[in-house]
Computed example of a mutant assay.
Amino acid sequence: MKLIECPRDAMQGLTEFIPTAAKISYLNALLRVGFDTLDFGSFVSPKAIPQLRDTAEVLAGLDLSQTKTKLLAIVANLRGAETAAAHPEIQYIGFPLSVSETFQLRNTNKTIPEALAELAAMQELCQKTGKTLVTYLSMGFGNPYGDPWSPDTVAEFTQRLADLDVRVVALSDTIGASTAATIEPLFRQLIPAFPGIEFGAHLHTTPGTWREKVQAAYAAGCRRFDGALGGIGGCPMAADQLTGNMPTENLVAYFSEIGEKTGLDSKAFTEAWQAAGSVFHF
């Protein structure tokens, strides 16, 4: 079981700038919890995501001496990937590849063919520099634009990634549109079809639907879940009304309930939860 904490996703849509020192303090609290991976920041244009313009400074302030948690940075293009790859502390580089052409243009200003070409260059860079590319299949459970979507469409995208030897693919519910009826069959189709790929669930949700979504992904064999404490955040490029991230505290409670070990330090988790409240004001 791998839990990926995503403070980057929680912060990116907030209009009020979180001071760099506050980000560093919060992320250091998260690093003590024992998450598999911390999606900590993003090397993208500060005009696009002004909240994350201090990612390099934040990275310099992180205490990595007492943690096994790996760092993941999101990028939108090859230049961002090159910046991320230059930091030895970062293990994972994440890139959003959209199943929806409309959203790919909105999110990275690229067509799908252009994004795939960029992704191939990123994968080559990661292989040369010892990084692992994590590809997020955005709008992986449908889209609001009328663009083509089906499980077979997602499988076709996944095959292109497999052909590039991409090893980690997170199906991303960018607008919270998924249901158990779409989540479980999709994971059941993909997981056995691509044994060389580790599939993750990056699910956005409303407060009333989180459990059925997690249950569906878990039942289908997914063992990699993204979350954000407090369910804060969402994708500012996807909709004006942000659908929240999957609350990490709900994931932890659910897996405890079913007897699935997460390996988290409960005391550090409580401290991180308190820190999240002060950062995000909940």
Rank of each mutant, 00 (worst) to 15 (best):
T206Y: 12
F199S: 01
G230N: 07
I232W: 08
A180K: 14
A155H: 04
P192L: 09
S178H: 09
V214E: 02
P195T: 09
L164N: 01
P144S: 15
A228K: 05
I175R: 06
V168T: 11
W149H: 13
R167C: 08
Q241Y: 06
G176C: 10
Q159P: 02
A220H: 04
E156T: 15
P207Y: 06
A170F: 11
D147H: 07
N143T: 12
G200I: 07
R224T: 13
F194N: 04
I232Q: 06
Q241H: 10
I232V: 15
K213L: 11
G227W: 00
D152W: 12
A239H: 12
D152G: 04
Q215H: 11
R223D: 05
K213Y: 08
L164T: 00
A170L: 13
V168P: 00
V169F: 08
L190Y: 03
G208S: 13
G221I: 14
I191G: 01
R167A: 15
A155S: 14
V166T: 05
N143L: 10
G230T: 05
A201K: 01
L229S: 03
A155T: 11
E184D: 06
L186R: 01
D163W: 06
Q159T: 15
P192D: 04
V154W: 05
A239F: 10
R224N: 10
L186T: 06
F141G: 03
C222W: 09
D226Q: 09
E184N: 05
R223E: 07
L161Y: 08
N143P: 09
T158I: 09
V168M: 14
E156L: 12
G234E: 06
D163T: 14
A181N: 09
L190M: 06
S172L: 12
P195L: 11
L164Y: 04
R224H: 12
A155N: 04
L242T: 07
I232M: 11
P151N: 08
F157L: 13
F199G: 02
D152Y: 11
P151K: 00
R211G: 02
T209E: 14
L203N: 01
A219G: 00
E156P: 00
R223Q: 10
A217F: 10
F187V: 03
A170C: 15
L186W: 01
D165T: 14
P148T: 11
A180M: 13
A216K: 07
P192M: 07
A162Q: 11
L186Y: 01
F187P: 01
G227E: 04
G176A: 10
G196D: 15
A170P: 00
D240V: 09
G221R: 09
I232R: 09
P192Q: 03
G200Y: 04
Y145W: 14
K213A: 03
T206I: 12
T205A: 08
P151Q: 06
A193S: 14
A201M: 08
T182Q: 01
E212Q: 15
D173I: 11
T182A: 02
T153K: 13
A170E: 10
V166E: 02
S150H: 00
W210F: 13
T158E: 02
I183G: 02
G176T: 07
P195Y: 05
G142F: 05
A217P: 02
F157S: 06
G176I: 12
T206R: 15
Q159M: 13
G227L: 08
G146K: 12
S150I: 10
Q241F: 00
L203Y: 03
D165C: 12
G231I: 10
Y218V: 15
G231V: 10
P144Y: 15
L242K: 11
I175E: 05
P144E: 14
